[in-house]
Design a protein around this nucleic acid. Structure first.
Length: 215
DNA sequence: CTCCCGATAT
DNA sequence: ATATCAGGAG
């Protein structure tokens, strides 16, 4: 993709979602880390419903280790994938206490070593909690990037991330990440994208393809 | 690659 | 009924 086309995309989604932000409710880096870990293959809305009670009951890493795994599983059951996530939360808390003084580490390399924390989660934490420019590629960012032609259909999430970092100025990485998510979540949706009212339709092959009668 | 998994939209 | 949801580990 050419830089001028990318600039058009950036300016357009900035106009559509000027206040895009992290929608996972949290009040500190530790809560954000737990919320993002829980958000895998689950909507933010459901995560927020569960963490509303969860974060009242569990304040510190020690609190998650003080209950049997079965109790934590029940507390996050509605999220889905709850056995893996409960186990990862307890392992993560143990590692925070043993290796990081009970605090969430501020660097990417330490974050990805935490159980249940991969590239996407680590990028969300360093950008939202610690102000480090990053572009976390989740399902929305991947889908939107491929539909708009920023990335190719068979690119890996890492390749998508590299292309975005190359095309977007560093000081716009984090806000662009949030705008791409809002664009994907509320407009360029997976199941029923709003192509008829899309201001980017002219430069979107996928959109024009979808607008044709055959589909 | 498969498995993990409940909630919600279509 | 099926697709999708702020993925990660084995």
């Amino acid at each position: 993709m050419k830089p001028d086309k990318m600039r058009t995309i950036l300016d357009t989604i900035a106009g559509m979602f000027p206040d895009a932000h992290c929608e996972l409710v949290h009040s500190n880096p530790f809560e954000l880390t737990i919320a993002v870990l829980l958000s895998a293959q689950c909507t933010d809305e459901t995560v927020n419903k569960v963490t509303a009670d969860l974060f009242k009951k569990y304040k510190r890493p020690e609190d998650y280790l003080a209950v049997p795994i079965e109790e934590l599983e029940q507390d996050i059951r509605r999220i889905g994938l709850y056995r893996n996530k409960a186990a990862n939360i307890q392992k993560l808390c143990r590692m925070l206490i043993e290796k990081h003084g009970g605090e969430v580490p501020r660097d990417y390399e330490s974050l990805v070593e935490l159980p249940g924390v991969g590239r996407k989660t680590a990028n969300v934490v360093i950008s939202n909690a610690f102000g480090v420019p990053a572009i976390a590629v989740d399902t929305h960012v991947e889908r939107v990037s491929k539909r708009l032609g920023i990335a190719k259909p068979d690119d890996s999430v890492l390749e998508v991330e590299k292309k975005l970092m190359r095309l977007v100025p560093r000081d716009e990485w984090t806000i662009t990440h949030h705008r791409l998510i809002f664009f994907g979540r509320y407009h360029c949706k997976a199941q029923r994208p709003n192509c008829p009212e899309c201001p980017l339709l002219d430069l979107c092959k996928e959109g024009k393809k979808r607008m044709r009668p055959s589909g």
